[in-house]
């Protein structure tokens, strides 16, 4: 009897695990199969006998593209604000592609693109993007939208940033007062922007008051809030966190604080595994009128103001000039 009980418990655990995999409508390529799939270019929609518990049946996809998988490397802000939660399912439904959204800092996203590990990039560090265009690592780079960065800090504003006209001036005051400044320190788009603002201020930040988290924007805002420090944030992430924090906007509206997002394809001619068609479809999708309209109104219901301003079809020069 005892042995029987043991057996039943073990069987129950096994059944649970196997059962879970049965319910998972996943589309992972199966070990041993994918290479062949890739060569023949067939979507894996034929039912295959699951060899392992983690190999579930493939769902039937009407009019699935030849290579259905698109890896999108993007910045944390597009995910953390929830924008891609709206846009990606829409793109998938409309085109039959399956998007794997990898949310990392812009620096890492660009690196993934440069190495051919991703198919399409949605990033916000124009100065770092240009070398990739010039080297031919990315193609079809298009302006999608912008919003702006804000400097947030403690309400009592110990460094006296409020009332300064430019971001450079504000940062200079923070450095002079040696007020705590929390930096992303992760080579993200926001961190790159912050470095350029310090350079404009003529300050090489360092010392006890300048602290780097090496984490995403949300985590960095939380650290700044606990330490009552200043930090540079994109407006979207700030608005998403506003309900939890004491920090408030101490500086906004300066032209260098513009935060510009581009979408671009990783060059499929450089890396044969890159899904050029899927990436091109995603770029086109982001520039569609309907999608641009969604971007325009996204977040208004929740925060009372839009998080992003659509710029499809514009050039960066037009944006900065106007």
């Amino acid at each position: 009897m005892k042995r029987l009980h043991r057996f039943v418990v073990l069987a129950a655990i096994m059944a649970l695990i196997v059962g879970c995999s049965g319910q998972q409508a996943s589309t992972d390529p199966q070990p041993g199969q994918p290479q062949q799939e890739q060569q023949t270019g067939q979507p894996s929609s034929q039912p295959e006998a699951p060899a392992e518990p983690e190999a579930p049946a493939e769902p039937e996809e009407p009019a699935a593209p030849e290579n259905p998988e698109v890896i999108l490397a993007t910045t944390t802000s597009t995910v953390d604000t929830g924008l891609l939660d709206v846009l990606v399912p829409m793109f998938e439904e409309r085109t039959g592609y399956i998007v794997k959204t990898i949310s990392v800092g812009t620096g890492q996203a660009l690196k993934l693109g440069e190495n051919g590990e991703a198919d399409v990039l949605l990033v916000h560090a124009p100065e770092s993007e240009k070398p990739l265009v010039e080297s031919g690592a990315v193609i079809n780079r298009q302006l999608v939208m912008h919003n702006d960065y804000v400097i947030i800090g403690p309400p009592d504003d110990p460094a006296g940033v409020k009332g300064t006209a430019t971001a450079a001036e504000g940062l200079k005051k923070i450095a002079e007062a040696e007020a705590i400044f929390i930096s992303r320190g992760d080579d993200s788009g926001t961190h790159k922007k912050e470095r350029s603002l310090w350079a404009a201020a003529g300050v090489e930040p360092g010392g006890q008051w300048y602290q780097e988290t090496g984490q995403g924007m949300g985590a960095t805002i939380n650290v700044a809030n606990e330490k009552l420090g200043y930090t540079l944030s994109d407006r979207g992430t700030y608005l998403a966190h506003k309900k939890n924090i004491d920090l408030e906007v101490v500086l906004e509206g300066d032209t260098p604080l513009l935060n510009i997002y581009h979408v671009m394809q990783v060059n499929p001619e450089k890396w044969p595994m890159v899904n050029g068609e899927g990436a091109a479809a995603f770029v086109d999708f982001m520039l569609e009128d309907e999608v641009q309209e969604i971007i325009r109104t996204f977040g208004v219901d929740k925060y009372g103001e839009p998080l992003f301003f659509p710029d499809g079809g514009k050039t960066e020069e037009e944006l900065l000039g106007g």
Binding site: P31, P34, E54, I71, K100, M273
Partner: peptide
């Protein structure tokens, strides 16, 4: 498992199998 890695052709990156 990265595309540039030795098993990149298996296309297992970013799948539950890779996590396993």
């Amino acid at each position: 498992l990265w595309r540039s890695g030795p098993f990149g052709y298996l296309k297992l990156m970013y799948t539950p199998t890779a996590m396993i």
